[in-house]
Amino acid sequence: MADNRFGDYLKTALSGEFDILLQKKLDIPALTTINKKPDAIIIDENVDGTCGDELCLRIKTEETIAAIPVILLIEYNDNKSYISHAASKADRLEPRTTDIYRLRTDIRMLINSYLFLAKRTNRMLANTTHMLPEAMEKDEDNLIFINKVRELLENNLSTEGYTIDMLCSTMGMSRTVFYHKIKEVTGRPPVEYMLTFKMERAKMLLKSGRHSIAEIADMLGYCDAKYFGRKFKDYYHICPTGYLKKIEQAPAVNS
């Protein structure tokens, strides 16, 4: 992190769920030699005169840590800024002003995907050693693929009528190829995966208590709160209002 105050804020805000190691300057040797490598890395847009894109590239070209998900913080949340960071090889771009709940969720999703693929690689190590190089390359390709899908879904979360065809087009894949790829990686067809992505985000937004149901419907690209409510109830078997009441009635837990 370049900004000490912002770095300290992130460390405080995220430490309830994650163990945080804060570096004022990227120290790759330290990341490659510690007993437990990080499950995710957050890079500021500019650190000690070096742009975040270059730092991301350094991480991704270091073989021992290249598979670790990297989040690059960017100053502006607009299409031009996103395009300018396309060559950074970061797994996710996040505005520096992003909601901490969103950042926490995105980190957790990236880590879960990373750990899932790491477990698959370990199983292959034990059972199919002769296939190791191909298997590892395939798993890394899968991680890159699903992170790109999640990034596109995130960027178009509020776009009403965002379709699988639009997603396939941006991914540069035919609908058939995309269907088989996402089914292979996630075990779910595209429509189901997209719905799950939205519903998980809906649950998180409701739990935060910072938005009305109508606002959340708009944030998730639904035409109105009533339609969003039906989709939420179909998925979770409880309406958004009922879910909010359930949260309010839940006993407080001391941590």
Rank of each mutant, 00 (worst) to 15 (best):
K203C: 00
E140Q: 12
I164K: 15
N142S: 09
K198R: 15
H237F: 11
V177Y: 13
S208M: 06
T241N: 13
Y243N: 03
G229W: 04
M171F: 01
Y162G: 10
K203I: 04
G221L: 01
M219C: 00
G209E: 03
K226S: 15
L153G: 05
G187I: 00
A202K: 00
F145R: 03
G172T: 11
G187P: 03
V177D: 14
K138E: 14
T241R: 08
V185M: 08
Y193K: 05
T176G: 11
E160T: 14
D234W: 02
D218T: 06
T159W: 00
Y235C: 03
M166S: 12
A217Y: 02
F197E: 07
Y243E: 11
N147K: 09
D165W: 05
K203H: 10
A202F: 00
E192D: 11
L195T: 14
I238G: 03
S158T: 10
N142K: 13
E151Q: 15
L153K: 07
M204L: 13
D224K: 01
D139H: 15
A225Y: 09
Y227S: 14
D224M: 02
S208L: 03
S208F: 04
F228H: 06
K148I: 04
L143A: 15
T163Y: 07
S158H: 10
I216Y: 04
S212V: 02
T170F: 02
M173R: 08
P190N: 10
D234F: 02
V191L: 14
Y222L: 03
T186R: 06
Y227T: 15
I164F: 09
E154F: 14
I146W: 01
F178T: 06
I213M: 01
N155C: 08
Y227Q: 09
I238N: 11
P190C: 05
E215Y: 01
R201P: 01
G161D: 11
D218W: 00
V191P: 05
E154Y: 14
E160M: 07
D141S: 10
G221P: 09
K148N: 12
L195K: 15
T196Q: 10
I144C: 12
M173E: 13
E151W: 10
V191D: 13
V185W: 10
D234K: 04
K231N: 05
E140F: 13
L220V: 01
M199Q: 07
F145D: 02
A214C: 01
